[in-house]
Amino acid sequence: MKSIKLLALALITAGTLVVLPGSGKVDDKQAVTQAVEKLRKAMIDPDKATLEALAANDLSYGHSNGNIEDKAAFVEALVSGASDFKSIDLTDQSVTVVDNTAMVRHKLSGETNNKGVAGQVKLGVLLVWVKQKGDWKLLARQAVKI
């Protein structure tokens, strides 16, 4: 009887070990999804510390008009109000994690008030996130008008 209990425990343990490696991907997808949501909120209500914490030092942030910003310019544009999002809605989002890199694609629609001029945006966006010291950081972003 004791050997059956030990065998059952061994099988349960082995089954758990088989499941655990895959569960990291699910956790990473959830963590990336949460990072995207933090970024969305920080772009609507800009906070310098939050934006800097979410962005990798080597950030390359591409706008749909061809303008490309580094981390400092990206943060400054939002904090100063030069780039002012009143709302951002994300749809059709997909997240793919490969090792310490994640690709996020979504459609972004929103209302802006850049430099005091009201507008609307509809974009297709690709975000590239990298895991650095346990945190997901935005490394690159490119948007196209749709």
Rank of each mutant, 00 (worst) to 15 (best):
A73W: 06
A73I: 03
F74L: 05
F74N: 05
F74K: 04
F74S: 02
F74T: 07
F74D: 01
V75D: 02
V75N: 10
E76F: 04
A77Q: 13
A77S: 15
A77D: 14
A77W: 11
V79I: 09
V79K: 09
V79R: 01
V79L: 06
S80R: 06
S80F: 07
S80K: 06
G81L: 05
G81M: 07
A82W: 05
A82G: 09
A82F: 08
S83D: 00
S83A: 00
S83T: 00
D84G: 03
D84I: 00
F85Y: 13
F85P: 02
K86R: 03
K86M: 01
S87K: 08
I88Y: 04
I88N: 03
I88F: 05
I88D: 03
D89N: 12
L90N: 05
L90A: 05
T91L: 11
D92Y: 01
D92A: 06
D92S: 09
Q93C: 04
Q93G: 09
Q93E: 12
Q93F: 10
Q93Y: 06
S94A: 15
S94R: 14
V95E: 07
V95S: 09
V95Y: 05
V95D: 04
T96G: 05
T96V: 14
T96Y: 15
V97T: 12
V98S: 12
V98M: 15
V98G: 08
D99Q: 15
D99A: 15
D99F: 02
N100R: 11
N100A: 10
T101H: 15
T101L: 15
T101C: 12
T101A: 14
T101V: 15
T101F: 08
A102G: 09
A102L: 08
V104F: 03
V104L: 08
V104Q: 03
V104H: 02
R105F: 12
R105N: 15
R105I: 13
R105C: 12
R105A: 15
H106F: 14
H106I: 02
H106E: 12
K107V: 12
K107A: 09
L108N: 06
L108E: 14
L108Q: 10
S109L: 01
S109K: 11
S109M: 10
S109Q: 13
G110E: 04
G110S: 08
G110R: 03
E111K: 13
T112V: 11
T112Q: 09
T112L: 06
N113H: 09
N113I: 05
N113C: 11
N113P: 01
N114G: 07
N114V: 01
N114S: 04
N114C: 06
N114I: 01
N114R: 02
N114Y: 03
K115N: 13
K115L: 13
K115R: 14
G116D: 11
G116I: 06
V117C: 02
V117F: 07
V117H: 08
V117D: 02
V117W: 00
V117S: 05
V117E: 10
A118Y: 02
A118I: 04
A118E: 07
